[in-house]
Amino acid sequence: MKPLSLIVRTGCNLFAWFMLVFGVNVVVHGYASPGGGFQGGAIVATFIAFLLVSYGGEKIHSWVNEKIYDLILEETGLLLFITLAFMGLPTSFFYNFFTIPWEAYQQTGRLFPQGTTAIMSIAVGIEVAGALSMVILSMFKGIRLVSDRQIEEEPGHDR
C-alpha cells in the first residue's frame, strides 16, 4: 500500500501524537477518571492503525519491530498482572495489599495513585496495546504478502 496524500500525512503528523498521549493518559489515570486499562490500550492501538493507514505498510514495518509488541509489551503486561494478583496471596487472590488507608485520605484530602488497582490498570493497558497493535500489524503483513504476488503495480491513491 502506497502512502496516502500529503494532506492526510500532515493531518497524521499533527494529530497522531495527541492520540498517543491521550491513550497513555487514560491508562495512567484509570483509577480516578473514566477509562482504564482496556480502553486506553485500545486508543494506543488506534494510534498504530492511524499511522498504518496514512503512511502505508512498508514504512511502518521498517519503523517498528513486531517482536516488541508480541514478546515485550504483551507478555510483560500479562506477567505483571498475574504476578500482582499472586502477590496478595497470603490473604486472598487479588488482595489489594498496599492500598493507602482511608484515614490518610481524610487528612490530606488528596487521592494518591496507590494500591494494586492503578498498577493493574497500567499492566492491562500495556497488554491490550501490544495485543491489538500486533493484530493489526500482522494482519496487514499477511495481506501485503498476498497482494505483492498478485498486484504488481498498484495505482496510487491520489497522486
Partner: peptide, 22 residues
C-alpha cells in the same frame, strides 16, 4: 474506603472481580 479509587468501575474490574479480567 477499601481501595482508594474514585472510579468504581475500575475497582470492580481490577479488584473485586479480578478473575474475569484474568
Amino acid at each position: 474506603k477499601d481501595l482508594s479509587t474514585e472510579n468504581v468501575v475500575t475497582s470492580i474490574v481490577f479488584d473485586y472481580r479480578g478473575f474475569d479480567t484474568i
